[in-house]
Amino acid sequence: MKRLRSLLPVVFGGLAFLGLWAAIVWIGDYPDFILPGPGQVLGRFATAWLDGTLLEHTVVTLLEVLLGFTVGAIVGLAVGALLARSRRAGMVLSPYLVAAQSTPILALAPLLVIWFGDGLLSKIVICSLIVFFPVAVSTTVALRGVDRRLIELGRSLRATRRQVLSTIELPAALPGILGGMRVGVTLAVVGAIISEWAGAQAGLGWLLNIARGSSFDTPLMFATLLTIALLGVALYGVMALVERRLVGVRG
């Protein structure tokens, strides 16, 4: 009951948004290919799911996101741990990492598609590039922030370096690392869409392109955008759940 009540503002906000949207379409009397009304979009959303179009492309994008996120998160963890451990590694690597991160992925994506083809590989590369940075940064910060006194405790109990890492540092840094992954998973969706945009044969980004370019099906564009947003929310929710399971309640 309490949970339900806390959802009320969200529902109200959504309804208000739909109402405003419908009002704008009605007042401006826009044609469908510029701004379709909420009813039309929801209808198109339903038919595109029922005829399997959205399902097919969602599966493609989801696979790219999951693989790209996994690769990016693993590399981000490793590099983050290296940066936390070694000041010198930080000094050597940091400028390049920041420079790479500052280059818009949108600009890099076409190049990466040329190099790695318009299949799954280029999507994984682009997704993992975009996931890598927040995970690496949060891992470094979280590991550096581990209470030195707990590490000293480990030393006093004659823990090996590896034991200190696995039983003290990683669990202590886990909330921070998972926070970075939560950011990363939503970015992974962005990465997948951008990479499909740059060149692909399937996926929600590709569908967006088709709906806009060749079929002028603006309601389908909206339905696709809605699907992308829902995908992001769902993945974020899964990450939050994982976080709650792994971290639980701490003092």
């Binding site: 707990l150 006093s156 004659r158």
Partner: peptide
């Protein structure tokens, strides 16, 4: 180095919160 014969009690409990 840390010796197995020693038990150390620090000023703070230093329990692992998880």
């Amino acid at each position: 180095g840390p010796d197995p014969a020693v038990g150390f009690v620090f000023q703070e409990p230093r329990l692992l919160p998880w």
